[in-house]
Design a binder for these strands. Structure first.
Length: 579
DNA sequence: AGAGTTCCCATGGACCGGCA
DNA sequence: TGCCGGTCCATGGGAACTCT
């Protein structure tokens, strides 16, 4: 890359030298445009080649590993079913009478709901098993009433049994079915049910969501973002409600820490399945731990320390999940991803053989190097989540606001722009040297978008959004201060105070005046004005530097003062941390 | 006031080595 | 083999600035 860059610089140099002669400018410009067009074409061509290669590699890997994967899945499923009491030839209890009799008595509404849910699962499983036997041409032995009565079911074990059964679709339904691969543009390809059982599960899931959020939003299923729980509703049907309440599961389930301390001890054999090197990882500053807790709640895994706080860097925490749960999480997340869909699909289908893993590792690295995003329709939920993670709410002084989202590659920003333009109007997408940026610079639209995002479940930036919506010329300064409290330390000491804003306004005003004078042909006066501007800018810079220096001294003093008052490691106190 | 650009550096992701 | 701690550095969050 360095060599190519050096060659490109050398190629352009003669043209830059030509610019010394103004008469050559049009020719240079024409030449540069040709060069730019050629470079863009080359870039596009390279990306296409990489994408094509990635798809071929993935397909080959899938075909090679799919058979073994499915056989392993079958072994796991059979073992689970054999271990469950459903297959135990113990005392026969008539299921119908048992449930009917017990539920006819006064029981809590919650237990009744869970019981009905379990019966529905059993009913669907029975229907699916019957269809499978028919397909295989094997006689359906359970048709007789006598055999049906042989099934033993004890309530305490229902929870243990329901977890693996409820997870079946995710275990069996690999996202990389050939159908999904041949239609990468399809936004729902990876979520398309591939078996009757899976289809049933998806249907139930959708019904559940509809019940809960019918009035809240009428969005396509893709990209829901109702905090962390939206992912749960899409990814892990049925089982999350019990887990979220910290209820322990029976044998075969996840023995999640009921206190919610962020530790998870895998007890299921499925959890021991190796996955990649580390599985999935999300790191966040400790202030955004709510996001990590959502991941923990939905996908299991562990939250641990990522890095210590040091200086102006905040302490970081990270959520990670490995083994089989990581595959499930990757599978579920892939269906709703634009930027990382290919990476997640790769992770969900991580091969078992060492040689295959090496190829996948290379492929994963490659996917991160170029714009491997898959464009797809974007919803309010998706935009909310994306903005919560990557967006920036900027106060421009006075009552003005802007919203920004930056990304290295533009594909996902184009999807977001289409969504915003369609629903809210004016939005801009800029391409810069190092990145692309989506910008909403009209204050009224900013507020409208913020309101919509708040209703859609904004988490990390919810407080900022509320403050910004209430921004007026009268409360500009307090709101600015409050907004400053909500953000990280990237701009520590550099945020302009009241005086700084006033100076910036005066500089702006003087520059505008100079332009007017120049346009009127009053060149001497314009020149004098510009000299004043230069002086004002110098003073502005100096005062800003002094203020930053003062804030840093104050910061250091606060840390020293805290350290002298305690022998314990310091944790956050306002904006201070020194672990 | 809005559109467009650039700068600074904390944040977040990747990776590596030690250890159990 | 997986977990964990530590480090590196590209990315992007936040803001200011310029121009219209």
């Amino acid at each position: 890359v360095r060599e190519m860059r050096a060659r490109a610089i050398e190629a352009v140099k003669p043209w830059i030298q030509l610019l010394g002669d103004r008469r050559q400018c049009p020719e240079v410009r024409k030449a540069m445009e040709v060069l730019l067009r050629e470079t863009r074409e080359e870039y596009e061509s390279t990306l296409e080649m990489k994408t094509a290669k990635a798809e071929v590699v993935q397909e080959l890997q899938d075909r090679a590993s799919q058979q073994e994967w499915m056989i392993r899945q079958l072994v796991d499923v059979v073992e689970i079913l054999e271990d469950a009491l459903l297959c135990t030839p113990s005392v026969p209890v008539d299921l119908e009478l048992f449930f009917a009799d017990v539920l006819a008595q006064p029981v809590s509404e919650e237990l009744r709901t869970r019981s009905v849910s379990c019966l529905r699962v059993l009913s669907r499983c029975g229907a699916a098993a019957r269809r499978a036997l028919n397909t295989l041409g094997v006689a359906c032995g359970s048709d007789s009433a006598a055999e049906e009565a042989d099934v033993t079911l004890e309530m305490p074990d229902m929870e243990g049994a329901s977890m693996p059964l409820g997870s079946f679709p995710l275990h069996l339904g690999r996202p990389e079915t050939e159908e999904a691969q041949t239609s990468p543009g399809s936004a729902t390809a990876a979520a398309t049910p591939t078996s009757p059982l899976e289809e049933d599960e998806v249907l139930e899931e959708t019904e559940g969501e509809a019940d809960e959020d019918a009035a809240a939003e009428e969005e396509p299923r893709r990209g829901g973002y109702v905090g962390g729980t939206a992912v749960a509703s899409q990814a892990v049907p049925a089982r999350t409600s019990a887990e979220a309440q910290g209820q322990s599961e029976g044998p075969g389930g996840h023995d999640r820490d009921p206190a919610g301390t962020g530790t998870a001890a895998p007890t299921s054999p499925l959890d021991k399945v190796p996955f990649g090197e580390k599985g999935l990882i999300v790191a966040q500053s400790f202030r955004k731990v709510a996001v990590l807790l959502s991941f923990l709640e939905v996908f299991g895994g562990t939250i641990s320390r990522h890095s210590n706080g040091k200086g102006l860097c905040q302490p970081m925490l990270c959520w990670h999940v490995g083994g089989f749960p990581a595959r499930l999480a990757a599978h579920a997340l892939a269906a709703n991803s634009i930027t990382k869909r290919k990476q997640l699909q790769l992770a969900a289908a991580w091969p078992w053989e060492r040689c295959g893993q090496e190829a996948c590792r290379d492929e994963l690295r490659a996917l991160k190097k170029y714009d491997s995003a898959e464009a797809g329709p974007c919803s309010l939920g998706y935009f909310t989540g994306f903005f919560d993670a990557e967006g920036c709410l900027c106060h421009l002084g006075g009552a003005r606001l802007s919203l920004q989202v930056k990304q290295k590659f533009p594909t996902v920003l184009q999807c977001l722009r289409e969504f915003l333009a369609e629903n809210y109007g004016c939005v801009h997408l800029y391409g810069y040297k190092t990145h692309s940026a989506l910008s909403v610079s009209r204050t009224s639209i900013c507020k409208e978008v913020l309101r919509a995002m708040l209703s859609s479940g904004l988490i990390c930036k919810a407080e900022q959004a509320k403050l910004a919506i209430g921004l007026t010329p009268q409360n500009s300064l307090p709101v600015r201060l409050a907004l400053g409290e909500q953000v990280g330390n990237q701009s520590f000491g550099r945020r302009l105070d009241e005086d700084g804003l006033e100076r910036a306004r005066k500089i702006q005003s003087a520059m505008s005046r100079a332009t007017v004078l120049k346009d009127q042909g009053r060149l001497m006066e314009a020149d004098t004005k510009l000299q004043q501007v230069q002086l004002m800018k110098g003073k502005h810079k100096l005062l800003n530097a002094l203020r930053e220096n003062e804030q840093l001294r104050q910061y250091i003093g606060n840390i020293r003062a805290l350290q002298s008052h305690t022998d314990q490691p310091l944790f956050s106190v306002g904006k201070l941390w020194a672990l």
